[in-house]
Amino acid sequence: MLTLIAKRAVLGVFTLWLVSVLVFAGTEILPGDVAGAILGQSATPESLARLRAELGLDVPALQRYVEWLTGFLQGDMGRSMASGQPVAGLLWPRFWNTMSLAAYAGVIAVPLAVGLGIMAAALRGGIFDRVSNVAALAFVSLPEYFLGLLLVLWLSVKTGWLPSLADTYEGMGMAAWFRATTLPMLVLVMVTTAQILRMTRTTVLGVMDQPYVETAYLKGLRNGRVVLRHATPNAAAPIVNVVSFNIAYLITGVVLVEAVFNYNGLGRFMVDAVSRRDLPLVQAAAMIFGAVYVFLNMVADIAAIALNPRLRHPRGKEA
């Protein structure tokens, strides 16, 4: 089992490398002319050439890639084209902002959604199941900004309970931070809870089709026990997968929510960089998002390996 996990970890690192190739290729090799885009109308052949040299674009792509990657691995993400500041200094505080918001939402959404999903599966066909299914479907369908705007309207503009913008700053108190981020958190919780609930329910019901579940019913066990003791343990690995998939969503889906609430996170930062076509910023942010995503996928796969009784207790060995 350890070898399997190690293999998966190596694969994760390999994927990360491939991601770096794609990000680099996507930003630099695609036929867009970065220098032209920056200078726009005022471009003259001389100024273009000068800017290209300044940006290092006259060097072969492969060499630039190697330099970029080695720099990146040492924590040097280059300098912003727009402001000239080091990217790392701009990026990390925003990264932590995004992570805090995602964590705030995740801590609430995941247990809530998994619990409700298992409950819906146990009470399948009943009122709770139907209502939760339709409600979850609606929340999955609604765009984040629609929910966000509704919440702003009701909980902020009309009632004045919470601030409409998620202004956070260095050194603000815990209470103030929670107050500022509760609205975006609520939006994220609603969307992810709905998603996880639906997928958890489907996963558990998928297991409920198995003959061993029938065996459990034929022992005279009551429904709740069958679902919790016999179905859920076998659904654990896919549920972990669902959760990790949705945490990954949280971290990227946060982009839209950050835009609604003007939250100073990595997502909004990246969107701004894209509008300004600030290449090093986009590269760095994309790499960070990619790395988090790859990491979460890897954790899910490793958890699935670790949860598999066949791998934990191999054949031929006494327990």
């Binding site: 991601v19 076509r277 990619g290």
Partner: peptide
């Protein structure tokens, strides 16, 4: 293995 939104942003950055 890259979030779709991020990939899209990368391409839109390059191509407008």
């Amino acid at each position: 293995s890259i979030p779709v939104l991020i990939s899209a942003l990368v391409v839109l950055q390059a191509l407008g």
